[in-house]
């Protein structure tokens, strides 16, 4: 079984390496940065099955495969977004490398370390990116926890303003405030609470 997927991966990697041109990959990454669903779909289609096979063959479940793959895409997104971005490898290789790292780490955390066969399939060093990603992820989790412990309507109100970037007038209509000033006041109170929640956690993390 193991030998099967190894050859499978090798064939896939070699095949795509020949077919894909660099410009194509650049277009895809630009699309990813701009949250273009067509680009995301292409990246997904081209890479997910390989990662799923890898995870499933290494004691993972379908859910694990989805989580790991999506996290890898987010890592790629962060890398593509950074100003000093240079992708030195194929998207496929990069995603595979990140997923491999992420999954081995998770297996370790679960105390079920299994030495995944390494060597034949091509990987790139992603440790640095992983560290940045982990930090970002931790920050994200803090914000996520803070947001979720806010309660309604604070959560939706702040999401509407900071994430969906809606205007105060629109928000006041949507949430049923009598005018934009009242909504602004409420938003301020919510913001203060969120900042308090966020910075308590954030500073501990620092």
């Amino acid at each position: 079984m193991a030998s099967f997927w190894v050859t499978f991966i090798v064939v896939l990697v070699l095949k795509t390496a020949k077919v894909k041109s660099d410009t194509n990959e650049q277009v895809l990454l630009r699309g990813l940065v701009n949250n273009d669903s067509k680009a995301i779909e292409t990246i997904y289609k081209d890479n997910f099955n390989m990662i799923q096979a890898f995870i499933l063959n290494n004691n993972g479940t379908y859910d694990d495969a989805r989580d790991i793959f999506q996290e890898a895409v987010i890592t790629l997104y962060e890398k593509a977004k950074s100003e000093s971005f240079v992708l030195t490898s194929q998207i496929k290789t990069y995603i595979y490398s990140v997923c491999r790292r992420l999954w081995l780490k998770r297996l370790q955390q679960m105390g079920r370390y299994i030495s995944a066969p390494d060597g034949i399939e091509e990987t790139v060093p992603v440790e640095e990116d992983m560290e940045i990603h982990e930090k970002r992820n931790a920050d994200f989790m803090i914000m996520d926890r803070a947001m979720n412990s806010l309660g309604e309507p604070c959560k939706s109100l702040l999401e509407a303003y900071y994430i969906q970037r809606k205007g105060m007038t629109e928000i006041s209509v949507e949430f049923g405030y009598t005018n934009a000033d009242n909504a602004k006041n409420q938003k301020y109170k919510c913001l203060m609470r969120l900042k308090k929640l966020f910075f308590t956690q954030y500073n501990i993390g620092e």
Binding site: N35, I74, R136, F140, I142, M143, D144, I163, F198
Partner: peptide, 15 residues
């Protein structure tokens, strides 16, 4: 941080 959060939420949603 909020921007990063917003971006990640959006991306996760798209994914």
């Amino acid at each position: 941080q909020m921007d990063v959060y917003a971006e990640h939420t959006g991306l996760k949603h798209s994914l």
